[in-house]
């Protein structure tokens, strides 16, 4: 297997008194696409949000156990969350561009990192937009509001915005669930291209999507990680009966 990027050991997460993640141990490799699947409420999104500590924003979330990224415990009290999130970017389910121009959306991350030089910003923005496969569609109107883009374009812009910070890991929380099939296939194509440079973790409701694009698949059920293996194996010959029932559509 490739180099390990993310690693958790006996990780538990509670929302108040409710247990949302139960004893998760997983090892996610570098520069692969890892998909999290499972029925609603199974904990897959919660786990994804633990990886860049977005759960910190929610009241009453308590985490036990450790999550290591590059062998560093990200829940250690010396960890700077801001630096962590620069390294572990996130794309959300609903595209959420700022009410700014296309250029300013992508330049937002570099700017907060203190990059002021116009040329440098321009290059970063161009590269990010190219990597997010949206450059050709927006290069003539970088000054226009991002809110004027279509849903699929907005989501690719949000991906570009995430890439502009130059993360190592990109977390994607059902990034195509609100999009039409054509936009979805564009996003999927884009994600596959991204694994050359980035470690991708994607939560999806769409099992065909997981099967199409991911290298590895983790099946979550009721807060537990039931099975984690090569995508091909999960979809053709799963070890656990629950996994098989889910992917064959017998529940969920």
């Amino acid at each position: 297997m490739a180099i390990e990027k993310i690693h958790t050991e006996n990780m538990f997460l509670h929302y108040g008194s409710k247990m949302a993640l139960n004893n998760i141990s997983i090892s996610i490799p570098e520069k692969k696409i890892t998909a999290f699947i499972g029925p609603s409420g199974c904990g897959k999104s919660t786990f994804l949000r633990s990886l860049n500590r977005m759960n910190d924003l929610i009241d009453g979330v308590k985490i036990e156990g450790n999550i290591f990224i590059d062998h560093i415990n990200i829940y250690d009290k010396n960890i700077d969350v801001v630096t962590l999130r620069k390294k572990v970017g996130m794309v959300f389910q609903k595209s959420n561009p700022f009410a700014k121009s296309i250029f300013e959306n992508v330049a937002y991350g570099p700017r907060i990192n203190g990059i002021k030089d116009k040329n440098q910003l321009g290059e970063i923005v161009e590269t990010a937009l190219k990597n997010a496969a949206i450059w050709d569609e927006v290069k003539d109107r970088l000054g226009d509001s991002a809110l004027g883009l279509s849903g699929g374009q907005q989501q690719r812009l949000c991906i570009a915005r995430t890439l502009a910070v130059n993360p190592e890991i990109v977390l994607m929380d059902e990034p195509a669930s609100a999009l039409d099939p054509l936009s979805t296939s564009k996003i999927e194509e884009l994600i596959v291209g991204l694994k050359e440079k980035y470690t991708i973790v994607i939560v999806t409701h769409n099992m065909q999507q997981a099967a199409r694009i991911s290298d590895l698949t983790a099946f979550f059920y009721l807060g537990e990680l039931i099975e984690f293996d090569k995508t091909k194996k999960i979809f053709t010959n799963p070890e656990k009966k629950q996994t098989e029932d889910y992917i064959t559509g017998r529940f969920g």
Binding site: T83, R85, F92, Y108, I112, T162
Partner: peptide, 24 residues
Amino acid sequence: DLRAASLALGATKWQTIRKVVIPG
């Protein structure tokens, strides 16, 4: 969503307030 987007990009809370929340 916009606050989350900003924080996920590695902005501090104050940067998020200053650059996203107040302009909005």
